[in-house]
Design a protein around this nucleic acid. Structure first.
Length: 137
DNA sequence: GCCAACGTTGGC
DNA sequence: GCCAACGTTGGC
């Protein structure tokens, strides 16, 4: 099982909305690095859900419910989407500031490359963020 | 609203 | 295949 971090602007698609809808399609990715990460996702993988632009914090955990398929928002076969469902909301959101303060998390793309929207996390990195959120899986 | 960082495009 | 110009993202 792999771990990921996915970013969304909450006024476009928030974790709350995902909870309301029970399942969401993660589409619209137009970046090859992010696309490659989408293609590596498998059903059952867990992804931290980060709110960019507004909030700037990890608010919940999503679970990949369907591996990659053609992105329905475009005919261009370069792009793919996955399906996700809510797994667990965090007891306490973890802010970008907090993440940047963790020695263990200095190398994650969220800190090093602010623009990547889908990135892998190691189990250690994933658990480090969970620990800050006082959430148990 | 600004600007830095990065990716993409297109001329040569 | 290089590199300058441009567009986009996202933190501040």
């Amino acid at each position: 099982m792999a771990y990921w971090l996915i970013k969304s602007e909450p006024d476009v698609y928030s974790y709350t909305k995902l909870v309301e809808e029970k399942e969401g399609t993660w589409d619209g990715v137009r970046n090859y690095q992010a696309r490659n990460n989408l293609k590596l996702m498998e059903k059952g993988d867990l992804a931290l859900f980060y709110h960019s632009n507004i909030g700037l914090e990890v608010v919940g955990i999503a679970q990949i419910s369907q591996p990659w398929f053609q992105d329905p928002t475009t005919d261009n076969t370069n792009w793919v989407a996955v399906k996700v469902k809510p797994f667990k909301a965090l007891n306490k959101p973890v802010s970008l500031q907090t993440i940047k303060q963790q020695p263990l998390l200095q190398n994650i793309a969220l800190v090093r490359n602010g623009r990547l929207s889908v990135m892998p996390l190691s189990a250690e990195e994933f658990n480090c963020i969970l620990k800050q959120s006082e959430t148990h899986v």
